[in-house]
Design a protein around this nucleic acid. Structure first.
Lengths: 200, 200
DNA sequence: CGTAAGTATGTAAGTGCTTACTTGCAGCAT
DNA sequence: ATGCTGCAAGTAAGCACTTACATACTTACG
């Protein structure tokens, strides 16, 4: 007994199923037939909702490009002028979100490597804004004499880099973390090194 | 007038041609026919030298897994006990090598994302050894009371992360660097932040 | 040395399977 | 009864890999 969904629901369901597959196998590595099977429908249904495979992929990237609460929550902490708290919050949120759903990071990398036209939008919405947020935070700290003078964008990217690299080697290359290093401890150490490094 | 090469030369030429294509388009995205055309030969020649497309890919990964002079040159500097010099050398070498030939980084990412069986060997030979080298260097610095106590592997990965992230956003996502930030200046700032961050 | 036999490099033209996408038709909701 | 969601069964193009045959180079023997 098959379920009959409304067009909108079905479209949504196809997108969700396809995210999973594209993120695991890339655009070229994913078959429209697999998507249909995984969604429990026929291929023709995919093509009723999306003109081409590429259009489905683009719909996914656009859907995933909406910026979420990461920046909002960091901004809240930022008002308290608690430097360690801000960097800790950003680092932990990044790790939590990626570990809860690694498909985003994989899609971002796949789309960049495969040269998808929307890759840039994707990157800007997910990464660039984070760089800019931290860069602005550091700039303010410099003005308030807590941090020494430096290129704030490079510094911000440095901190993000530590966290991203951690995620890369764990989520992508399958490096196991040593028993004594929970995400919290790792982030704590990154924050400690970074903050001490930029303070006056 | 076609050139007739020895088996060894031809094999080498196929590998070199294929590296370029696989690194740009991934394993699944590269057609054996394209490789043949780019090498100026027929597909059948590829299959005389390699039983399958996958075998050609594996040959490339194995060839690219040989560790190069990065560690050697860093080890030389390391003997001088010049902390900034060591991290600067590692960071600059990484950037120089990747900018001179981005195919390695792309192959590494593609093979991990696409789940190639040799991806792990690739990662260990190119990344893990670097982590361990810096980790050992930091551990020595801690013993000699120049650095404060910490998890040396996490710290090492933090520094590498800054540099890798820089390479990712420039080589993969096409972020242009601001006019005032040459690789030298960027590395210098990373080294400055990181060293100040781990010193006593 | 000269040349024929043997061997390696090379190609053109497939083969059969997979794949993105289509068509024609059926049944359900309003 | 019309317009929707849905499917089975295509179709044409693309793909990794093969086959049958040609052409250059090497070697051995009269």
């Amino acid at each position: 007994m098959k379920e009959r969904l409304s067009a909108e629901e079905r479209r949504q369901q196809i997108v969700e199923t396809a995210v999973e597959l594209f993120s695991r196998k890339g655009f070229r590595g994913t078959r429209t037939r697999e998507i249909a099977e995984a969604a429990g429908i026929s291929e023709a249904m995919i093509y009723r909702h999306f003109a081409t495979k590429r259009e489905l992929y683009s719909a996914i990237i656009e859907a995933k490009s909406v910026t979420e609460e990461l920046l909002a929550s960091a901004a809240t902490v930022a008002q308290r002028k608690d430097d360690a708290g801000v960097f800790r919050a950003v680092g932990l949120k990044m790790i939590e979100q990626t570990e809860a759903d690694p498909s985003l990071m994989r899609l971002l990398l796949f789309s960049a490597l495969e040269g998808h036209e929307l890759s840039e939008i994707f990157f800007e919405s997910r990464v660039k804004r984070l760089h800019e947020f931290l860069s602005n935070y550091i700039r303010k700290g410099i003005r308030e004499k807590r941090f020494r003078s430096m290129d704030t964008l490079i510094a911000a990217r440095g901190f993000i880099g530590m966290v991203v690299h951690y995620l890369l080697i764990h989520e992508l290359f399958g490096v196991k973390r040593p028993p004594r290093s929970s995400p919290e401890e790792v982030v704590e150490q990154f924050v400690s090194i970074f903050l001490k490094g930029i303070e006056r």
